[in-house]
């Protein structure tokens, strides 16, 4: 699976499991947060990445970070 802030490019290039990252310069971090908050964010992103790996997909899919947010299929 791929974590990137540019999910449409990853999908066009053929990636099948894509998770939207935070930013181009820091896909799995956010320097505006406190250290503790950022570590927690990164743990949550990585946890979501693992969930994508263990999920069966029939089509190429892009997930947002929060489970409740829209899931799109390009």
């Amino acid at each position: 699976m791929v974590i990137t802030a540019l999910p449409s490019i990853a999908s066009m290039a053929g990636a099948t499991r894509v998770l939207r990252g935070i930013a181009i310069t820091n896909p799995v971090g956010d320097r505006s947060l406190t250290r503790e908050q950022e570590v927690e964010l990164r743990r949550a992103i990585t946890e979501r990445a693992l969930t994508m790996l263990e999920t069966e997909f029939s089509r190429r899919s892009v997930w947002e970070l929060k489970p409740g947010e829209a899931t799109t299929t390009p």
């Binding site: 974590i3 310069t25 799995v28 971090g29 956010d30 320097r31 990164r42 743990r43 992103i45 990445a49």
Partner: peptide, 18 residues
């Protein structure tokens, strides 16, 4: 891309710590 955030903490690029 601009490397400021990555230089402070490379885990922002690769989530090894998490």
């Amino acid at each position: 891309f601009e490397l400021g955030a990555a230089s402070e903490d490379p885990n922002r690029l690769v989530p090894l710590d998490a």
